[in-house]
Simulated assay, not measured.
Amino acid sequence: MGAKPATIERRLMTLKSYFAWREDRNSALPSPFADVRISVRIPRRLPRPIDRDTLRAVLQEGEATFAVRSKPGADDATPASQNDVTILIIKLLIVTGLRISELTNVRVRDVSPDGSQILVNGKGSKERIVFVPNRELQEEFQRYCQLRSEHGSIGAPLFFNTVGRRLRAATFRKRLRALSKRLGIEPHLTPHRFRHSAATLLIEEGIDIRMVQALLGHASLRTTEIYVRVSNHALRRALERVNILDVLSV
């Protein structure tokens, strides 16, 4: 009772699969779903991007950590801490809109020498190039990649966990939950919410939707169109640029 449409559809698919398997094992037991067509209408959910104030709080957490590690006498060659890496990944998710699985599968050789481009293997094994536009982030990313290349092969994973293996998406999600709890962020941060934020911010700042589609690796423009919504932030910026009373007085 009270199950969501997606849950109902998943349960129906499970039942259909079971009865199809049973019929395949014993033809005397036909599937009750053989001549039944059940369609479950699943409402399209709007993305839940992270608001700008929360994004600022997360990035400031990274700046505070960096300030502690940058005291006089600190060794620049010291490998980045796990918290540093978490914040770096968050920054990359915000500016590139990558899926966390795409980013955790990146290898050292997939990043350009200056840290401005990443070769990504996306859904359906489709390759695309994403850009890191912020100069300060490029330099931070370049330093990290240089350390990784010095401590491993260029074919090694770019991001790794505490035991030196490729960082798994599930592990990064746990890190975000811990960060959310530490900063009192609710609902908690998720990698996909950063992807939603990247798309929403770009569209709010006037980037063409087809460029956003290419960045996100969407096969269909219809998937990207969900981000084309009038937000309070975008509306306020637009109204501030155009003074209607001044236009009428001309």
Rank of each mutant, 00 (worst) to 15 (best):
S81N: 05
I87F: 13
Q60M: 15
R107P: 00
L119F: 09
I90G: 02
I90L: 09
V58T: 05
I42P: 03
V36H: 08
S39E: 11
G97Y: 02
D51H: 07
I94P: 01
E9F: 12
V120F: 04
I38F: 09
S125C: 06
L88M: 14
V130K: 00
A67N: 07
K126R: 09
L59P: 00
V85T: 10
L88R: 05
V85K: 06
A57F: 06
P113M: 08
K126I: 01
G97E: 05
T54D: 11
F19T: 15
E23W: 06
L29A: 13
I50S: 03
R37A: 11
K71D: 09
Y18M: 12
N83T: 15
E102G: 00
R22A: 13
R37W: 07
P30M: 06
D24W: 10
K71L: 13
A64Q: 11
L29R: 10
E61V: 02
N26S: 14
I89D: 06
T78P: 00
P49K: 00
I90F: 04
P47I: 02
I38W: 08
R107I: 05
A64Y: 09
G73W: 07
E127L: 13
E23I: 00
L12E: 11
D76T: 08
G115F: 01
R56N: 10
T65E: 12
P79W: 03
S70H: 11
Y18E: 11
W21P: 01
R128W: 02
V120H: 01
F66V: 02
P113W: 07
S39H: 10
L93V: 01
L55Y: 06
K126P: 01
I90E: 06
K4C: 03
V40A: 10
R11Y: 12
S27G: 06
K16I: 14
G124F: 05
T86R: 14
P72R: 06
N26M: 08
I38L: 15
L46Y: 08
G115I: 01
G97P: 00
L29E: 12
I38D: 12
K71N: 08
R69Y: 05
E9C: 12
V68N: 02
G73I: 01
V85Y: 03
R69P: 02
Q82P: 04
R10W: 08
R99C: 01
S101N: 10
D51F: 03
P43R: 06
Q117V: 08
Y18F: 15
T14G: 10
I50H: 03
T86V: 04
T14P: 00
A74F: 14
I89F: 04
I50A: 05
R25G: 14
I42R: 14
V85R: 07
Q60T: 13
P49H: 03
R44L: 08
A67S: 12
L103H: 04
V111K: 01
D51E: 13
T104A: 04
I87Y: 15
L103G: 03
E127R: 13
R109Q: 12
P30A: 09
K71P: 02
A6R: 09
T54Q: 07
K71T: 11
N105A: 14
L88K: 04
I42T: 12
L59H: 04
I87N: 07
R56K: 13
P72E: 08
A34S: 12
K123Y: 01
L119G: 08
I50T: 01
R99G: 04
R22I: 08
L119Y: 12
F19W: 15
R109K: 12
R128V: 01
A57I: 10
W21C: 06
A20Q: 14
